[in-house]
Design a protein around this nucleic acid. Structure first.
Lengths: 193, 193
DNA sequence: GTCTATAAATCGATAGAC
DNA sequence: GTCTATCGATTTATAGAC
């Protein structure tokens, strides 16, 4: 009796496996044969589930980007201190990265290989950074944060949060809340005694 | 009269142009024809100066990696406080990244496409991280630094420093010393008032 | 839903003229 | 030192049998 996998499940499996391979070698270096072989099928069979390699990349990156956009919107609408908003942003990154660390690699490193959807992705990213920066500026204005160059602060925190995908998979034993807490300490309070 | 470019100069030009293209699209997505066209010659002509595409990547990444190794050795040998050593590491990253931000992109994102030299690169990187971590641990032991998880601290600072290549090219008006100073404030003292 | 076979384009690299 | 021409391998994607 032949094992039949429903298309929708197979499609999710293709996205997940692709993200894993894209993280290891990057979008351009992963061939449809690599992907098929990892899934235990032939390359041609992939096209019964997806239309193109580009569609895979598009789905991986944009689904995460929209998740970040949604999270940022909720944080902006919450009536809390700037420090609390920054902590919520840290939690947002830990949460999304924990659930999809492979996809985060594509979002960080392979967005430039997006074709039709690249402009849309860049728009989401720019808006996200603008909102992030506005929270930092608000924190400085309300005297919660030190008056360091907001761009340096944004760059520093965001660089760390964007690199979480490299680090979280190696720290599986650690609790997400503990990690977010430690990151909040280091990123907000510093390490100098 | 024909313009003749000495091979050694041309070779440096090939390395520099490759690093620029590798930063934009990644090693795998840049073809020898892309590279040649940017240089205004034909692809076949490249092979009068270099032996393979792999040789280009190898040179770009390993020359920088060895620069970091050398810098770290000097910092380790300096008899200073842990805080001062950390500040020197920040300066080292700002310095190297300012001089070669395109190459830093390859070092960060394309090291997995190294072939013969990959093990050597990974050895240099691992040693660098071990030395970095030992400075942090020493700082905690001597009561200079807060007793946060050393791995979280290492990850956070190193993520920011490794991302400098994305940011420095956009901030050309800024002085390197000012940038290193601001980064030291944010990374070491935090932003919370 | 998966397969074999193959199309059409592109890849890194080489040979040899100038 | 650069060129034209080309090789052999590999790429994404399609057609059609089962």
């Amino acid at each position: 009796m032949k094992k039949i996998i429903p298309t929708e499940t197979r499609k999710q499996e293709i996205f997940a496996t692709s993200a894993k391979l894209f993280k290891e070698k990057g979008y351009s270096a992963v061939t449809m044969r690599d992907l098929a072989q990892t899934l235990g099928i032939k390359a041609a069979s992939l096209y019964n589930h997806i239309h193109s390699k580009q569609e895979i990349l598009s789905h991986i990156i944009l689904s995460i980007a929209e998740e970040f956009t949604e999270g940022m919107t909720q944080i902006l609408n919450s009536k809390e201190s700037s420090i609390q908003k920054l902590k919520k942003i840290i939690i947002l990154h830990v949460e999304i990265t924990s659930n999809n660390s492979n996809g985060m690699a594509s979002l960080n490193n392979d967005w430039m290989h997006l074709e039709e959807k690249q402009d849309y992705y860049l728009e989401l990213r720019l808006n996200y950074e603008d909102n992030f920066r506005s929270i930092i500026k608000q924190g400085i204005a309300s005297n919660e944060l030190k008056a360091v160059d907001p761009d340096v602060t944004l760059f520093s925190i965001l660089s760390t949060l964007r690199s979480l995908y490299l680090w979280i998979p190696k720290k599986e034993e650690i609790n997400k809340d503990v990690l977010a807490g430690n990151l909040g300490e280091v990123l907000l309070d510093g390490i100098n005694k």
